[in-house]
Design a binder for these strands. Sequence first.
DNA 1: TCTGGGGTCCTAGGACCC
DNA 2: TCTGGGGTCCTAGGACCC
Length: 372
Amino acid sequence: MDAFFASVELLRYPQLKGLPVVIGGGRRQADDALSERHGGSQQVPVDAFPRLKDYVGRGVITTATYAARQFGVGSAMGLMKAARLCPQAIVLPVDFDEIRRYSRTFKDTIAELAPVMEDRGVDEVYIDFTEVPGGQREGGRSLARLIQRSIFERTGLTCSIGVAPNKLIAKMASEFNKPNGISIVYEHDLQSLIWPLACRKINGIGPKSDERLQALGIQTIGELAARERDWLIGQFGPATGAWMHAAAWGLDDRPVVTHSEPVSMSRETTFERDLHPRHDRGELGAIFTRLCERVAEDLQRKGYQGRTIGIKLRYDDFRSLTRDHTLPQPISDASTIRQAAGQLLKRVPLDRRLRLLGVRVSSLVKSDIQSD
DNA sequence: TCTGGGGTCCTAGGACCC
DNA sequence: TCTGGGGTCCTAGGACCC
């Protein structure tokens, strides 16, 4: 989906179309009041929206409109830094309920046309065109067009689609024609379309691997493909080295997985200000309990229990650590989770301020519906 | 004026078992 | 006078993705 979070807000506030808008940061507050005060969301004058320059607090951008990206702001950037680059940009918080609603609608729309679909988060999916009637027409372009049109009719949102022989190349192809684009990449296009790209474009090569590759004089995927497989294995180990070599040659045989079980569920929160373990003990305790309750709600709503309870801390210097403990029996109730998490907290240095606390439950099993 | 939240997967060492 | 060889589970950290 193109600039998904921002595009959803633009449906509500079409008067912001073409303006720099970023989504992210603080809790949702003044927004509904904004609409009410002006007699409906579409009546809110542009001047009434909050601007980045007035933003105070922590947080990062989850999505920026294409107009905002022109100023160099983008996903994962701190809002304070973004404010320096584009002070006049409008900031809106994420409306998770609305996002989930649109996410469900676009995925349902696709699944009706092409049922072999893999979920990759709120705004992305892999689709297997192989067995879809007409899926091979024009190299897949005709089905891609149908999917785009159907999603737009149901939601008013645009998306970009890449069609290729495998997931690795399709993911790269999907970025070639954003927004609202389709791009078809055949096996024989590897050299001309994929090899000139930076290694960072490979899904799975992040900032750390990219830095290592650059230090070895490898910038592009073509340069990566030119290295001996065994040499890459020597540099990166048997698994990563072999995978990098295969990826550079466009090879990927992972299937489109239509169903998977969750591995863990967690809740975490960054405080508005760093909290001291002793001085702010009461506040931290209340937050900790609330996190346990929220994880418990998530588990019960989705019908899971877990045996491994974990905590996560982030200190004011941004260092983080985790502790976990596995119980003999799976649990899902808030008070037992809170108790186990409380024990873990005793195993951790509490000598400086904290900025984040998290609670996680893993080793999940489906809970027995009749009991409990 | 630093740096969200919810995930998955991998690695590596140690415990423990046969 | 040494110290096997697998396998699984648990824990902690880190890379990466959306």
